[in-house]
Design a protein around this nucleic acid. Sequence first.
DNA 1: AAAGTTATGTTATATTGTAACAATTATTTT
DNA 2: AAAATAATTGTTACAATATAACATAACTTT
Lengths: 152, 152
Amino acid sequence: MPEIHNHSTCVQTALTQAAQLCTERGVQLTTIRQQVLELIWADHHAVKAYDLLERIKPLQAAAKPATIYRALDFLREQGFIHRVESLNAFIGCCDLKTAHEQLLLICKKCENVEERHADLVMQALAQELQKAKFIAHSKAIEIHGLCADCTQ
Amino acid sequence: MPEIHNHSTCVQTALTQAAQLCTERGVQLTTIRQQVLELIWADHHAVKAYDLLERIKPLQAAAKPATIYRALDFLREQGFIHRVESLNAFIGCCDLKTAHEQLLLICKKCENVEERHADLVMQALAQELQKAKFIAHSKAIEIHGLCADCTQ
DNA sequence: AAAGTTATGTTATATTGTAACAATTATTTT
DNA sequence: AAAATAATTGTTACAATATAACATAACTTT
């Protein structure tokens, strides 16, 4: 995330694109799913499932763990969010339009998660996988440390 | 893992090196810790904490979750094992001597986990991190898919 | 409208991981 | 060797994360 960034635009773009993709794909962005997606986009931190559960309760009094996990499953299948494996948490995907692999930079201090394309890394990785004769289905590259803003 | 590999040698090396490093470092490779390390090295699959708990019970009747998690913490601190974040599981580290980053190739079929150095990937990653001005403390690169043996 | 599909409600439970404090064992200091 | 200190383990309880299974409701297609 650049220091200066208009977050409401950021969220609006994500929600609009998600809605559009759902229409194209003939799948339903139901109220619950949209609310979960909005809650995930509240900031650039990774959010835990049970935090989402607490946050959605004012909107969906009947919400239970399954409510959240089902919405998360859907949003992941559609590629709208990523699971941060090393945190058991979730973040909104910054680039719904172009298919891409995710390199996640997770700051220990501000807890922001930045998603980067990192084409060169992915290229080197593809080579390495070829060498290993390994057919990749999914890739998780998660780096923990300190982001640019937090290392002054 | 190469198809042909003498696993008992593989395990022996890991255990011997671990014991030696513990002596050098002045830390204790206690019975429990050694047993957990051996159980992790039983094969090249990632092992779950509660599976380890079941497997250690014949040897340590009093074993409880904390018993396992403490041993796992120790073994990780010493760099003898890795946590596979995307599986909530653990594997033995194949290279105790040279410090290195881990690229983990996780086969969905045979469930073997192969650890590779992947210097080119790490180099590209270092460049990307520099570009992002991100100071890395830990790196998890986990690829799920089909290994060479399972793609015939 | 009926049938089929998709989504949600609901209860219960499985899985993964930690906190806190007591008891024991190992190591260092006297 | 005895005492003091540190490290490890025992033990109980519980927190946090995630899924299964089945009932009900809502949409879609015919």
